[in-house]
């Protein structure tokens, strides 16, 4: 693997993930601080009566945020694979833009543990959090 600390163009990285485009996810990078943004779109609604974002979409957004953070911190071109994650739903997602940040709790050689949090208007009032494990691929494994 190449230099593991080279900051990379994360918007270019997510260009290689069509599903990130489908959900309308972009990256706001300020130095080494990364915030992912999921722009509101009618197609993200799960409960049209409230209305509220689909819970699965929020889970997917958190998973994507964890992957982006891992890609940034490991500097690896290989996309980390989720092993398992738990999403806690704290508040219903309003029909507005959603933001998220991830923090790597522990990065091992093969597995990383990541925590991520999503919020909307108020950072101190997260709408959902997740913690999960991701498999980091080495160069050889990525080819298999």
């Amino acid at each position: 693997m190449s230099d593991t600390k080279t900051p990379r163009d994360l918007n270019a990285f997510i260009e290689g993930i069509p599903y990130a485009r489908f959900l309308g996810i972009s990256v706001d990078q300020k130095g080494n601080e990364i915030t992912t943004v999921m722009k509101f779109d009618q197609k993200l609604i799960g409960n049209p009566l409230l209305p509220a974002l689909h819970g699965g979409v929020i889970g997917a957004f958190l998973e994507m945020t964890a992957i982006i953070q891992l890609a940034y911190e490991t500097g690896s071109a290989a996309i980390p694979k989720p092993i398992g994650l738990t999403v806690d739903y704290l508040r219903s997602g309003k029909p507005i833009d959603t933001y998220a940040r991830a923090h790597i709790t522990k990065q091992g050689r093969r597995v990383a543990t990541v925590h991520a949090e999503a919020w909307q208007e108020d950072r101190s009032k997260p709408i959902a959090t997740t913690h999960g494990h991701f498999l980091l691929k080495t160069g050889e494994e990525a080819e298999s």
Partner: peptide, 27 residues
């Protein structure tokens, strides 16, 4: 669907799609 791909090199769909559909099936 190609829009759901999580890794353009392999064409494998993103885990988030699975999360979403499982969540909905559970509901």
């Amino acid at each position: 669907d190609e829009r759901f791909i999580g890794n353009a090199e392999t064409g494998v769909i993103h885990g988030g799609v699975i999360t979403t559909v499982l969540d909905n099936t559970c509901g």
